[in-house]
Simulated scan of single mutants.
Amino acid sequence: MLLINTLKTFTFSSFVLISAFQCPAFGLVNQSISSNKLVSINTSIQMPKQPLLVVQNYIYWGAQRDCQIMMPGVVTENMLDRLTSFSATTQTAYTIIQRDFPEASRIPIPQLRQVLQSAMRETIGHTGKVIRTTNLVIDGHPGLELLMQHSDGSLGQYRAFVVNQRLYFMGSLTKDELTTEAVNFFDSFRVYPERIRYSNSSIYE
């Protein structure tokens, strides 16, 4: 039952979250940041270029090899822009979603984090209580993390980054408590901006 509920939560939340970023109103957000932390994530070490594989030793690559992440457990959904897995060991569901976000080129970096916070709070945050908000940075690109207690008692941890004009969203959701497995999942994320190729490059000019 948890697996079904978590996958429904991820699917719905990710759809609404991505839709929220396409709303012009988010470019005008002037909401205060509730976090006093700034975490820098070092991803300067690149792996050698690999053949275009979906998985290699549980490390999954984006379709353009622009990102990689370790997905615990068994993959339950594998689409071009979304990957979801479930770990029976920790009873935790994981997801990573990536979408082009052309509007980011017109939003100053400080406001991008406000856009992230507003969109995440209005979608995922709507289903429970936000316990903690943390500002993140990955290779100089803005990001945000939310730790949430959902209304059904489950615990969720979510991260979103805007890299160039692409949005990366990651999440873990469990009925118990988040473990080292979830820490390793988030820490394994790597992004390679120079490999990003947009589906419609003219909209970025």
Rank of each mutant, 00 (worst) to 15 (best):
F21T: 10
S32W: 03
Y94D: 00
V130W: 01
F101A: 10
Q50P: 08
C67D: 11
T76K: 04
P51A: 10
F185C: 15
T43W: 02
F185N: 03
I59Q: 14
Y94L: 01
N200Q: 11
S199D: 08
M148N: 08
D152F: 06
R166E: 00
I45F: 08
R195Q: 13
E181G: 01
E181V: 07
T127W: 05
Y58H: 14
N164H: 13
I33A: 03
N135E: 13
S105G: 06
Y60M: 11
N164P: 15
S32E: 14
T123L: 04
P193D: 03
R65W: 05
C67A: 13
L17K: 00
Y158R: 09
F169A: 12
N42S: 14
E77A: 05
Q117R: 02
S105P: 10
I4C: 06
H141I: 08
T92H: 05
Q117C: 03
S202N: 05
F189D: 06
M1G: 12
Y58F: 10
F186K: 03
I124Y: 04
V55Y: 10
E145A: 07
A63F: 09
I109F: 08
R82A: 01
V39A: 09
Q165D: 10
T133R: 04
Y192D: 08
A160T: 02
H126E: 01
T89E: 14
G171W: 00
A25H: 06
M47I: 09
M120V: 04
E205M: 10
H141R: 04
I41Q: 09
I107A: 11
S188L: 09
M120P: 05
G143C: 06
P72G: 01
G62D: 11
I45C: 12
D66E: 12
T89Y: 07
H126G: 00
S172Q: 10
Q64W: 11
I131T: 07
I107W: 04
I124Q: 07
V162Q: 04
L147I: 14
T92K: 11
R197C: 03
I109K: 10
D152K: 05
L3A: 00
R65Q: 14
